[in-house]
Amino acid sequence: MSLSLKTPSAATLSAIKAIVFVLCLLPAANLALGWRADALGANPIETITRASGEWTLRLLLITLAVTPLRRLTGLHWLLRLRRMLGLFAFAYAAAHFAIYLWLDQFFDWRAIALDILDRPFITVGFAAFVLLIPLAATSNSLAIRRLGGRRWQSLHRSVYGIAILAVVHFWWLVKADVLEPAIYALILAGLLGVRAWWRELERRRQLSVPPPAKHLQRPVIRIVPK
């Protein structure tokens, strides 16, 4: 097993993946055990609703941190963890939604429809969840091949907007103390801001570099319109 952090061997990478997988399961296991032991406080349904929502948000932000981290550290294998992290974010979102439908509303469809229509924080939360579904459904190699890299990538860029909706969902839920949602908003702003900044740098670079001679041109993904 290679111990090089820069270019881990296949075996090391598998081990890292297994560890991340288990780490992502820990919050869920913790809640499940807490539920069984009746150790989730006076309002356990509120506790698991809240916790599953927060872990969705955290995992979304961690997923969004992969690209900047990879670029800053040069650890390109981090990209290999992104799909799993994104799918875990979706799994926690699905659990959050299921808890709401089942334990909170007990499938009272009328009340659920009214909630989605009348309560802005539920409207945006619901929208964020629905928009995550196509991303989760195309988080596999087959979908990437079918869609083609370019189209797959533009579809998956919608995660930026989804993360914003998720933070707004939390912000609007809070009654008065917005400190916690503000922290998430700040982190998200950093993660999106660094992308915007790098994109701007790339745009400037492309504008300043004279186009190569015709015979040297390779297909490049241009972000500056021709």
């Binding site: 309002n43 007990f106 909630d115 309560r119 924080f121 839920l173």
Partner: peptide
């Protein structure tokens, strides 16, 4: 309330509203 329907409530200690 803009953020909660006030039609139902959860009595602490009970599962269903």
């Amino acid at each position: 309330h803009p953020r909660w329907s006030q039609a139902t409530e959860r009595r602490i200690g009970e599962l269903r509203k």
